[in-house]
C-alpha cells in the first residue's frame, strides 16, 4: 500500500492558516489505523490506538513546522504510540490475569472455514512473536515492506532513514526472521 497523496498539512481554510485536526483525521485516519494495526500486532484495540495517536497529534500540531511531510510526521507518532502499546503489552504478560488473549483487528477472507481461521490466527500470533524478538528498527522495516507492502523508497520517506539503510535493515530483518522461524520450527518438532 502506498502513502496518501496529500503531503501538506490539511487546514480548515484551504492551503494556509492553522492546521485543522478534523481535516487531518479525515484524510489520514484509515492509513494511520492500518499502520497502527500492523505495527502493534494482534490483540491491539485499533480504535483506542488511533484515538491516542490523534490526541498526540493534536497536542503536537503547534510544533509541526512543515519540515517533514505530514505522513512522515504522523507515521512517527504512530510508531511511538505503537511502541508504547507493545511495552505495555509486554508488561501485561507478567500478570496472567490481566492478559487478554484475543486477536482483534484482523480480518479473514470470506472463504475461510473456522479451522482455517484458527490456523490463521495462530500463524499471526507466531509471526508477531518472532517479530517481537527482533530489534525495533528491523521489525518496523520488515513490517512496512512485507505486511504494508511499501517500497523501499516509501519506507525511507516515512521513517526518515536513507534508502541504503533501509535495504541493510531489511536484509538483516529477513535473516533474523528466518533464524527465528527455524528456532520456532525446531521447538515445535
Amino acid at each position: 500500500m502506498s502513502l496518501p497523496n496529500s503531503d501538506s498539512m490539511p487546514t480548515a481554510d484551504g492551503s494556509s492558516g492553522v492546521p485543522n485536526l478534523e481535516a487531518l483525521y479525515r484524510a489520514h485516519a484509515p492509513t494511520v489505523a492500518r499502520w497502527a494495526a500492523k505495527l502493534s500486532g494482534p490483540g491491539a484495540d485499533i480504535e483506542d490506538l488511533v484515538h491516542e495517536i490523534f490526541l498526540v497529534a493534536r497536542r503536537r500540531l503547534p510544533e509541526f513546522r512543515g519540515d517533514a511531510k505530514v505522513t512522515t510526521w504522523l507515521y512517527r507518532i504512530t510508531e511511538r504510540v505503537a511502541l508504547d502499546h507493545r511495552r505495555k503489552d509486554r508488561f501485561r504478560r507478567w500478570f496472567p490475569l490481566a492478559r487478554q488473549i484475543e486477536i482483534e483487528g484482523t480480518i479473514s477472507p470470506p472463504h475461510l472455514t473456522p479451522v482455517d481461521e484458527l490456523e490463521r490466527r495462530q500463524s499471526t500470533e507466531t509471526v508477531y512473536r518472532m517479530l517481537d524478538r527482533m530489534p525495533d528498527k528491523y521489525r518496523t522495516v520488515l513490517i512496512l515492506f512485507e505486511l504494508e507492502e511499501l517500497s523501499g523508497e516509501e519506507i525511507a520517506a516515512l521513517t526518515g532513514l536513507k534508502l541504503a539503510t533501509i535495504w541493510v535493515h531489511l536484509h538483516r530483518a529477513r535473516e533474523r526472521f528466518l533464524v527465528e522461524m527455524r528456532r520456532v520450527s525446531r521447538r515445535s518438532t
Partner: peptide, 8 residues
C-alpha cells in the same frame, strides 16, 4: 496470514 487487517 498477518498481512490482513480489519479495515478501519
Amino acid at each position: 496470514s498477518a498481512a490482513m487487517v480489519r479495515p478501519f
